[in-house]
Simulated scan of single mutants.
Amino acid sequence: MDRPVLDGSVPDHDEFPSQGPDATDPDADLRLELDQLRRAMRSRGTIDLARGILMAAFGLSQDDAWKVLVATSQHTNTKLRTLAEQVVDSAGGTPLPESVRKRLSAAVAETNAAADAQPQPQPQPQAQAQAQA
């Protein structure tokens, strides 16, 4: 970039190198995917621990704890791994940020309400007769 653009014209593409994977490198996408998978594997343990904390604290199932984490992450615009770290830290005494705490509480309440609204499976008449026999 030898010359500044002051006249409003758009400089040639070559003046601004691409910030993404190199189009001439056939392995760039694979390296990017590998990097993302490695990051996901590093954060998985923390996310699973946060799910366990939510399960124990609020009596949630594994699926419901996951739903609470995802909903809270989305509504607070917080990365899931960052939220999981905050939940784990909160179990050690570090307070959650107020906005996260409120949203987490709301997500737990919404998840419990949805679970309560689901019809419970009724036993089949044959199963009842066999159980009594």
Rank of each mutant, 00 (worst) to 15 (best):
A28S: 03
A28T: 01
A28Q: 01
A28V: 01
D29K: 03
D29Y: 02
D29R: 05
L30H: 12
L30P: 02
L32N: 04
L32M: 05
L32C: 01
E33G: 01
E33F: 08
E33D: 07
L34G: 05
L34D: 11
D35M: 09
D35C: 09
D35R: 10
Q36H: 09
Q36V: 08
L37Q: 13
L37A: 11
L37D: 11
R38L: 07
R38N: 07
R39T: 07
A40W: 08
M41S: 15
R42D: 12
S43R: 08
G45R: 12
I47D: 02
I47W: 06
I47E: 06
L49E: 15
L49C: 14
L49T: 15
A50V: 04
A50W: 01
A50M: 04
R51E: 03
G52M: 08
L54Q: 04
L54E: 04
L54V: 04
M55I: 00
A56Q: 06
F58T: 00
F58Y: 09
G59T: 03
G59D: 07
G59P: 05
Q62H: 13
D63K: 10
D63Y: 14
A65G: 08
A65V: 09
A65S: 11
W66Y: 15
V68T: 03
V68Q: 05
L69D: 00
V70D: 14
V70H: 15
V70T: 14
V70M: 15
A71V: 13
T72P: 08
S73H: 06
S73Q: 04
S73V: 05
S73Y: 02
Q74I: 10
Q74E: 14
Q74L: 13
H75W: 07
T76A: 07
T78D: 01
L80M: 11
L80I: 12
R81F: 10
T82R: 12
L83F: 00
A84S: 09
E85P: 09
Q86K: 08
Q86G: 06
Q86A: 12
V87M: 04
V87D: 06
D89N: 15
D89G: 14
S90T: 07
A91W: 11
A91V: 02
A91S: 14
G92Y: 09
G92F: 10
G93V: 02
T94V: 11
L96W: 04
L96G: 01
L96Y: 06
L96T: 00
P97A: 04
P97T: 02
E98W: 01
E98H: 03
S99W: 04
V100E: 02
R101H: 06
R101C: 02
K102I: 06
A107I: 00
